[in-house]
Design a protein around this nucleic acid. Structure first.
Lengths: 339, 339
DNA sequence: ATCACTTGCGCAAAGGTTTCCGCAAAGCAT
DNA sequence: ATGCTTTGCGGAAACCTTTGCGCAAGTGAT
């Protein structure tokens, strides 16, 4: 087995002083004489002493751990958000424990239970796409543990959250399509229980309305955010007697699946069909044609979620807030029909 | 503040028995009578008791935490490996603490220090590209803490590691180029201190040699794995009086940067220049033309690294092993000149 | 009735840290 | 010289769990 790290007791014994004296000396407590303090501090640094976080956690009843639940870790979107969370957590000396729900409610429940058992001080989460009821988050609320949702959120009246300006972004996309001469604008949405699906549909419909276009239900497809369903949804759209001249995909997976299917059929982007995704920088620039998209400030979403988390740590009784972050429509080749 | 989770003491007091009785009852110790045991177990489940991991950790001197250091979290390659590590860790009831070095040695050192201070039971790491000396890993070895490297490794005589069959893969790529009629095969490598750079160069050169081609130093470029340097390296190759007819990029970033630069100059892939990357499934299929590449078994790399980690936990004195995982050359459009 | 043994439970220590309190010695004022 | 405050340090409890040991009551045999 590995050697035990040096403890206060070890230092105390070696110097012939008491444990409390060592403890105080290391925090420059005025009760300790400068000479003793100096000897203790030197030995501590020689021996590479660092306080045992388990002991501190036990005493102070805090673990300095944040549980983070994401639907999928292996994705630019979520890993970038996690990166943002971590950057803020680090500043406050907190560590994060990541748990992936793999888009399953069951795993989401499990994750909460496991994280709670590990005594995290609270949780930052993004709902799985299956999640329709939220009772498994109640134990957190009951125990007054900090809880923050991001992107896919719920119970916004009781829980702080950070989201993108989904409605506005979808509205912009629709207008952009129209300005580029599109008239039959389709939208491939996600599970209807997700706030992001709902909000983007609303923006999409407002855009159509304000541009004097009627909403055609055939142009509003839905899928479960998997590549295969997204491909099928695209196929359904392309098979329509009145083929759309623009498609707007709710996220990365959907947009790329749509792109592949459109190309597979020998249709041109953007000439035959303009395409826009809700996605992030890296992927969008790598594909051909480069994908016009709504870029999420993913890193900032993570940072903001962490800030809201610490707001609850610092002010447990503060009312929940909803932080809405601005996205940006980055126009690239996939939607540009006019110069 | 949040309410304290229920402890053995709480249960004991409520039932008028001692703490040790409660503890034993919950593990079905034969010393406890069935009646008492039943009462205790029922109350425990009612109150949702779960043992405090800090107390257990303090007692057993183990935290059930593994530190994981990656050069960059926001990447399919690493997040997928992490996912693999987590899948094995979970089976053993371990949690992982992720730390990103951001390709900086300084941050790598910091990460090690932080993880050690958090009392992780060991570390699984991938070296930053800046790392040339390895003394910051010594404290782990000195304290006999489990350590496993993956992908970018070092001190393989003393530390277990898991890598891809880099030499063989690079060899296959070279042969594949030749079989598709390429003769001037270029390679854009990474920092020379990395094992992956070295091994792939060796396979590349063996391939050239066995195919009767001479190694031209002008065709061997180096970069720091950033997009900008990769683009410059590509530019240098394309500016050569004898332009290469094939380029082999050491990883994702490099391959995509090369692709963009080649396209920007109006050259065709694969007709003018065949291109192959060392990358993973998702990205390769999304670009146009689809990128022929060596796919890493990323999830399995993570799993294997975790297995080697637990091997050290279980058998602290077992000698280090190096696990070499097979990659696969997946031929797509970017390198196919012949049908 | 006595002894030996089993059954069923409690006590206490250990793991590392912080912090309230107590206590001795030294310093100062009267 | 006496009383008071300050200075500088140690003792011990608390956080929660596991486990070796001790101890009482009960069981069975002689």
């Amino acid at each position: 087995m590995s050697k035990r790290p040096v403890s206060l007791k070890d230092l105390a014994k070696e110097l012939g002083v008491s444990i409390s004296t060592v403890s105080r000396a290391l925090k420059n407590h005025p009760d300790i004489s400068p000479e003793v303090s100096a000897r203790i501090q030197q030995l501590a640094s020689e021996r590479n002493y660092s306080p045992n976080p388990l002991a501190m956690g036990l005493l102070k009843q805090q673990t300095k751990m944040i549980g983070v639940i994401v639907p999928d870790l292996v994705t630019h979107f979520y890993s970038s958000i996690i990166s943002g969370i971590e950057s803020i957590a680090k500043q406050r000396g907190y560590y994060i424990l990541i748990s992936s729900s793999n888009e399953s409610v069951e795993k989401e429940k499990e994750s909460i239970q496991n994280l709670l058992n590990t005594r995290v001080e609270g949780i930052i989460a993004c709902l799985s796409q299956e999640t329709t009821s939220f009772s498994h988050f109640e134990p957190l609320l009951k125990n007054e543990l900090p809880l923050v949702f991001f992107d896919r959120v719920c119970m916004t009246d009781r829980v702080s959250s950070v989201v993108a300006n989904n409605e506005e972004a979808a509205y912009q996309i629709t207008r952009h399509f129209v300005e580029n001469g599109c008239r039959k604008i389709a939208y491939i949405s996600g599970p209807s229980q997700l706030n992001i699906s709902q909000q983007r549909i609303q923006g999409y419909q407002r855009g159509l309305h304000e541009c004097g276009l009627s909403a055609n239900n055939l142009l509003l497809q839905q899928c479960n955010l998997s590549t295969s369903e997204a491909t099928q949804a695209t196929a359904r759209l392309l098979d329509l007697p009145e083929r759309p001249d623009a498609i707007f995909g709710i996220n990365d997976t959907v947009a790329f699946a749509a792109m592949k299917e459109i190309k597979r059929r020998g249709l041109r982007i953007p000439e035959d069909i303009a395409l826009i995704g809700f996605t992030d920088e890296f992927h969008a620039t790598v594909v051909d044609p480069a994908l016009t998209s709504i870029t999420h400030p993913t890193f900032e979403i993570g940072q903001e979620a962490a800030r809201l988390f610490f707001r609850q740590i610092d002010m447990p009784s503060a009312p929940p807030v909803q932080s809405i972050l601005k996205t940006k429509l980055v126009v690239r080749k996939s939607s540009q029909r006019k110069p």
